[in-house]
């Protein structure tokens, strides 16, 4: 019973540490080899996760469903529908992998553009408003994810 208690306390300790915000992915328990990795680690460090926080990962899921078709899987503004927009209206979806573009956009602007449409921030009306469809939390998550896109490209380029 004592042992169980100790274990529970240990789990609680880890949880508390996570909550207080000092535990970033990567400084949890060391990874010694595949057979000793805990499933939390394997799932959290899976290649699809790309070192994203929980919020950013939730944003990525929404992005893939709603935004990717125009803004592209990498967020480079070259999605399936981008060609049509360029061709029909001479407008192009924003390229979030460009760090100068991204730096010029405050998180608030991104959130307004997503929830109230492109027009609300002085951009094209062909960016529709998603505020009636997505929850505030989801919009914020997408914005958080978009903020990571330029960084991610730099990371992949420097690792090449």
């Amino acid at each position: 019973m004592k042992r169980v208690q100790v274990l529970l306390r240990l789990i609680a300790t880890i949880l508390i540490a996570c909550w207080s915000g000092c535990s970033k992915p990567g400084n949890s328990i060391a990874i010694a080899g595949d057979s000793t990795r805990t499933f939390r680690e394997i799932v959290e460090h899976s290649p699809g996760r790309l070192g994203l926080s929980k919020t950013e990962l939730a944003g990525k899921i929404v992005f893939t469903k709603y935004c990717q078709v125009c803004h592209g899987a990498e967020g480079d503004g070259k999605g399936f529908n981008a060609f049509n927009l360029q061709n029909s209206f001479g407008t192009q979806p924003a390229n979030f992998t460009d760090s100068t573009t991204l730096a010029a956009l405050s998180e608030e602007t991104i959130i307004t553009a997503i929830s109230k449409g492109g027009k609300a921030v002085g951009k094209s009306q062909y960016m529709p408003p998603w505020g009636g469809t997505l929850r505030t939390e989801e919009v914020e998550n997408v914005a958080a994810y978009i903020k990571t896109l330029a960084k991610m490209l730099e990371k992949t380029e420097s690792s090449k």
Partner: peptide, 19 residues
């Protein structure tokens, strides 16, 4: 229809998106 940018996703005539 024009104001809301419906044609970003729907084709009318020769213009529009294919979502």
């Amino acid at each position: 229809f024009d104001e809301k940018g419906c044609m970003a996703c729907h084709i009318v005539g020769e213009k529009g998106g294919y979502v």
